[in-house]
Computed example of a mutant assay.
Amino acid sequence: MCTRQTYYGRGPIQLSWNYNYAQCGQSLGLDLLRQPETVSSNPTIAFRTALWFWVNNVRPVLNQGFGATIRAINGDLECNGKSPDKVNARIRYYRDYCGQLGVDPGPNLSC
């Protein structure tokens, strides 16, 4: 019997889409394409996938501003006018947290 796998967001940084599960699994030496549920059932693997996603997708764009991190994480779903309410909410939260920490949010806040 063949079961259909689902590749919805799992883990501390929501690992989504089959291509991310495949690339992450290959990098970590795991078969996440065939066993995506491992990300939600094993806390160690969940955090390993989060770190993999951060290092490979988010860290390279940190110097481009907060908007680039939105694009790296949710670009196809939220950027380019696809979900301005979500983007604006993220920017509000980010500005609020920066204010609480006493740091400048910097330029390029929107994707």
Results as ranks from 00 to 15, higher is better:
Met1Asp: 14
Cys2Gly: 07
Cys2Pro: 15
Cys2Val: 14
Thr3Val: 04
Arg4Phe: 06
Gln5Cys: 09
Gln5Tyr: 06
Gln5Met: 09
Tyr8Thr: 10
Gly11Met: 02
Gly11Arg: 00
Pro12His: 05
Ile13Glu: 04
Gln14Gly: 09
Ser16Cys: 03
Trp17Ser: 11
Trp17Thr: 06
Asn18Pro: 00
Tyr19Trp: 15
Asn20Gln: 03
Cys24Thr: 08
Cys24Tyr: 01
Gly25Arg: 10
Gln26Val: 09
Gln26Ser: 15
Gln26Tyr: 06
Ser27Lys: 03
Leu28Ala: 05
Gly29Met: 11
Gly29Trp: 02
Leu30Ser: 04
Leu30Asp: 04
Asp31Gly: 11
Leu32Arg: 06
Leu33Asn: 09
Arg34Val: 00
Pro36Thr: 00
Pro36Val: 00
Pro36Trp: 02
Pro36Gln: 02
Glu37Val: 01
Thr38Tyr: 00
Thr38Gly: 01
Ser40Leu: 01
Ser40Asn: 05
Ser40Ile: 05
Ser40Phe: 02
Ser40Val: 03
Ser41Glu: 14
Ser41Trp: 08
Asn42Arg: 13
Pro43Asn: 04
Pro43Glu: 07
Pro43Lys: 06
Thr44Glu: 15
Ile45Arg: 05
Ala46Met: 10
Phe47Glu: 13
Arg48Trp: 05
Arg48Pro: 03
Thr49Glu: 06
Ala50His: 08
Ala50Met: 07
Ala50Pro: 11
Leu51Glu: 13
Trp52Leu: 04
Trp52Ser: 03
Trp52Gly: 06
Phe53Gly: 00
Phe53Thr: 04
Phe53Arg: 03
Trp54Leu: 11
Trp54Ile: 04
Val55Lys: 12
Val55Trp: 04
Asn57Pro: 00
Val58Pro: 01
Arg59Trp: 02
Pro60Ile: 04
Pro60Tyr: 11
Val61Ser: 13
Val61Gly: 10
Gln64Phe: 02
Gln64Leu: 12
Gly65Val: 00
Gly65Met: 09
Phe66His: 11
Gly67Glu: 14
Gly67Ala: 14
Gly67His: 13
Gly67Cys: 12
Ala68Ser: 15
Thr69Ala: 15
Thr69Asp: 10
Ile70Glu: 13
Arg71Cys: 05
Ala72Met: 07
Ala72Phe: 05
Ile73Thr: 14
Ile73Asp: 13
Ile73Ala: 04
Asn74Gly: 14
Asn74His: 09
Gly75Ala: 04
Gly75Glu: 09
Gly75Ile: 13
Asp76Ser: 10
Leu77His: 01
Leu77Val: 13
Leu77Asn: 09
Glu78Cys: 08
Glu78Pro: 11
Cys79Val: 10
Asn80Glu: 14
Gly81Ser: 12
Gly81Tyr: 09
Ser83Ala: 15
Pro84Gln: 08
Pro84Asn: 07
Asp85Val: 04
Asp85Trp: 00
Lys86Ser: 11
Asn88Val: 03
Asn88Met: 06
Ala89Thr: 07
Ala89Ile: 01
Arg90His: 03
Arg90Asn: 02
Arg92Phe: 03
Tyr94Trp: 14
Arg95Gly: 01
Arg95Phe: 00
Tyr97Cys: 12
Tyr97Val: 15
Cys98Pro: 13
Cys98Met: 14
Gly99Ala: 14
Gly99Ile: 05
Leu101Phe: 14
Leu101Gln: 15
Leu101His: 11
Leu101Lys: 14
Leu101Arg: 13
Gly102Ala: 10
Val103Ser: 09
Gly106Met: 12
Gly106Asn: 08
Pro107Glu: 15
Asn108Gln: 15
Ser110Leu: 02
Cys111Asp: 10
